[in-house]
């Protein structure tokens, strides 16, 4: 076993790798957007943004203009993102307190929020903060983000660790928001919840509609099978 465990897992998984998924999402974000990236998979999107796109990353702990990672020389314990990871900032960045940070979110000034998810349903409701009796992370800023951001994307794996589907007819876990999600991106493709099912906007290379799970929940979208469908379908946020 010369490969680290993550490589083994990646090789077995169908569709995009984590890195390819992050790059795919990064390409779909319109230039000059203000974007909030959630903890986990969405955070990785920051590594793949084109600097020329001038995208400002909002971090709800009080920072607008996250860009990349520090060197040992520039590492600062007071410069972190909402995942409590060390970050660097770009030219034009600003620091502020938490009330102003959430004024940006709730006030509709943030163009796009990309969050992680435990479950999303066909109505676009999201659950991502609690498994009653077993796991408690708290909602953090997620409920404000899904309420206030101009657009909400969920970036998550297609199934959980036990293989159970995460795109469902109806969420079973405590909700973060009701009918708030416009786009879902998993390693298998881009999806849009439309009330009765998920429309597949585009699929990762080699993935077909049969790979997505319950056939009653998924329909091929108009953009299929063009590979550019995701970007064009997503760019209207």
């Amino acid at each position: 076993m010369t490969h680290p465990p993550s490589s083994d897992t990646q090789a077995m998984r169908r569709g995009w790798s984590d890195a390819a998924l992050a790059a795919e999402v990064a390409r779909a974000i319109p230039p000059r957007s203000v974007v909030n990236l959630g903890i986990g998979l969405p955070t990785q999107v920051a590594e793949y943004l084109d600097p020329a796109a001038c995208i400002m990353i909002h971090s709800e702990n009080g920072l607008l203009g996250v860009e990349g990672r520090p060197t040992q020389a520039t590492l600062s314990p007071t410069r972190i993102n909402a995942g409590k990871e060390s970050v660097d900032v770009r030219l034009g960045a600003a620091y502020f307190d938490s009330a102003l940070s959430f004024a940006m979110i709730r006030g509709g000034h943030v163009n796009l929020a990309i969050l992680g998810g435990m479950q999303v349903d066909v109505e676009g409701s999201l659950a991502n903060w609690s498994v009653p009796g077993r796991k408690l992370t708290g909602m953090g800023g997620a409920m404000d983000l899904v309420t206030g951001a101009q657009a909400v994307w969920v970036m998550m794996r297609h199934a959980d660790r036990s293989g159970a589907p995460k795109l469902l007819a109806r969420c079973t876990l405590p909700l973060t928001g009701v009918r708030v999600v416009q786009r879902i991106i998993t390693e298998l493709g881009w999806f849009s919840p439309n009330g009765t099912h998920f429309e597949a906007l585009s699929l990762a290379p080699g993935v077909t509609l049969c790979d997505l799970g319950d056939p009653a929940l998924f329909r091929g979208g108009q953009a299929l099978p063009s590979a550019s469908g995701a970007a064009s379908g997503a760019s209207d946020l």
Partner: peptide
Amino acid sequence: AIEYPILR
């Protein structure tokens, strides 16, 4: 302390 000190 930094919870997650990630470098470039």
